[in-house]
């Protein structure tokens, strides 16, 4: 079994770096089996496709713009995740939703998929998360860990 935990976002734009900060902190938060990979995906867009398509379970950490814009931790699983592709001016605009639809078109969607996101408070150029987002990190870590633990235990059961 392979679980990929993929942090997305740009660390030089404040809260954009949420996902990357999370994958840096998670290995310290709990201990995980070797088949759990923590990946700093940055803003690599389409070049991350293999990380999307290769594991059984995929957990994505990213700054998001939710429908209701409250400062809290948002969690989506399975079909709750939207997948759509827009016309782009730049290949660099290929984001999470596009990668998900490409994986679907490829018929290579991971068996389980989840997204943990927070709405950014500050996207100005600069290193480090805003106080509002930093305050949400413990909750985001706990929710991420909970999903990972459930996947890990399910994976073990299936091997029996």
């Amino acid at each position: 079994m392979v679980i990929n935990v993929l942090g997305l976002g740009n660390i030089i734009f404040g809260d954009e770096g949420f996902g990357v900060e999370m994958v840096r902190q998670l290995p310290e938060y709990n201990s995980y089996p070797d088949y759990v990979n923590f990946i700093d995906g940055g803003t690599q867009g389409i070049y991350l496709l293999d990380y999307f398509e290769s594991p059984e379970c995929l957990l994505i950490l990213d700054a998001i713009i939710p429908v209701e814009y409250d400062a809290e931790v948002y969690s989506y699983q399975g079909s709750d995740l939207p997948s759509f592709i827009h016309r782009k001016l730049s290949s660099h605009q290929i984001g999470l939703s596009e990668l998900l639809s490409l994986a679907k078109l490829h018929e290579k969607m991971p068996r389980k998929i989840a997204l943990i996101g927070i709405p950014p408070d500050n996207l100005d150029m600069g290193m480090g998360l805003s106080p509002k987002v930093r305050a949400l990190i413990p909750k985001a870590l706990a929710e991420t860990d909970q999903i990972l633990q459930s996947w890990i235990s399910t994976g073990i059961n299936q091997q029996h």
Binding site: L8, E16, A63, I64, P66, P82, L89, S90, G95
Partner: peptide, 12 residues
Amino acid sequence: LACASHIMDMNG
């Protein structure tokens, strides 16, 4: 361009 950020817009 538009290369610096990677945010997910749930409103599509």
